[in-house]
């Protein structure tokens, strides 16, 4: 149980770290705009860096979103279920998610490896390596798979309430 909670907390912590990317993103863009507007000297690679930070944000935050149950869902039917049925519903959906995301992660990880071996680059004004972003993406997905597995096994053994105890609550809707 302790181990399972530790993994959830790790996911949340990585997610928080990805929050930092927003702050850096803001600064990078500000420097770029000010440089361009007032000194005709835009920040080289500002575009590439911003996109990389977005990848960091999006993918390293996914496991945290899963750990804190921040993903949107439709609860019209599931709200009507008895506690017992709800337990099985929870297990079933976690299992489906685990299977689907695992397959996607497997492919994405394979691609990240081949991209790294080839040294995949993009070329706007200056060359920029893309392969690190592919690795970050795959790492985020791997963490999500681990989190899903932990949620599934943990819920099977101890139930949902105990699994999610003590984790922060986020409201995600726009």
């Amino acid at each position: 149980m302790k181990f399972f909670h530790a993994i959830s907390r790790f996911s949340v912590a990585v997610g928080s770290l990805s929050g930092l990317a927003t702050g850096i993103m803001m600064v990078v863009i500000l420097v770029d705009v000010i440089g361009r507007a007032f000194f005709a000297a835009p920040l080289p690679l500002a575009t590439e860096i911003s996109v990389m930070l977005l990848i960091v944000k999006v993918f390293l935050g996914m496991a945290g979103a899963q750990a804190t149950d921040s993903n949107f869902q439709v609860t019209v039917l599931t709200d009507q279920l008895s506690t017992r049925l709800r337990h099985f519903q929870r297990l079933l959906t976690l299992l489906i998610a685990l299977l689907g995301i695992s397959l996607i992660t497997w492919f994405a990880a394979k691609y990240a490896i081949s991209s790294t071996q080839k040294g995949e680059m993009s070329f706007g004004v200056h060359p920029w390596p893309i392969w690190p972003e592919r690795i970050i993406l795959a790492a985020g997905l791997v963490l999500l798979v681990v989190q899903l597995a932990v949620d599934l096994i943990g819920t099977m053994i101890w139930g949902e309430a105990k699994m999610k105890a003590g984790l922060p609550d986020h409201s995600g809707a726009i």
Partner: peptide
């Protein structure tokens, strides 16, 4: 919070 929302 922005990080988690962005991810989801």
């Amino acid at each position: 919070d922005t990080g988690v929302t962005t991810s989801s």
